[in-house]
Amino acid sequence: MTTSSLQGRASWWRGVYLVARRESQATLDSNVAVATLIVALVASIAPFVHGFFLSGLVDATPFFLALPWTLALCLAALSMRLWSEDVRLRTLETWRALPLSPLQLVLGKWLSALLLHVVYLLLTTPVLWLLAAHGPVEWSRIAGGYVGSLLLGGWLLALGAWISSTTRDQTTAYVLSALLALALLALGDLRVWTVVDGWLPQVQAGSWLAAHLSPLSACQSFARGLVGLDAVVLLVGQTALYLWLNLRSLRAMTR
């Protein structure tokens, strides 16, 4: 049998890029992305601006401290369709018939959502102009805040993509992703982990979970301009874990 010159495949990274581009177009086509961006911008900027004019403090920390909660609710709306839509529309089979590895698919879809998160972060920069216009700004804190928000976005989207691969219903994917993200964030809150510690004082489960599972303290240190290696490792490590779970889930779907 002769081999046609047309039979080949795109390079590994071009494959990832093509998946990401297709998914970004599909997300924008659904209008959910635009609505989510608007809601996220209003929900994060409006309270900060209100607080800024009341206090008069030239400090971006409150903005970045509140961001994890807003993002937990908003990014779930971006990640909910990543896989569940393919299962519902039966396009998962199309993906699997193409010469793309499961890792290329998982990364491409995750990167497409992350790109929209980057767009969101760029659209929040008017906050900086506002601060800079009213006094000296601590740029290291702001840079730390943005690095933390980017990493947290990746974490939330990886979690949401994994949840999306476990259900065909987008609403279920949204609710589960948002609830799980909020629960994991809440575990890092002092008021929550001290209560959990109180249940089993000898185990100190609350403080252990807050330190090893919840990304909240990592985000709080980023918001204060402290870019610690342990915080980066926690967020990047858990992002990799959720992407790996997504891969496992994708493989299970083909059995």
Binding site: R22, Q25, A26, D29, S30, L89, R90, T91, E93, T94, A97
Partner: peptide, 10 residues
Amino acid sequence: AEHDGLWDGM
């Protein structure tokens, strides 16, 4: 495939 497997929006 048995079902087209086409992305509707494209």
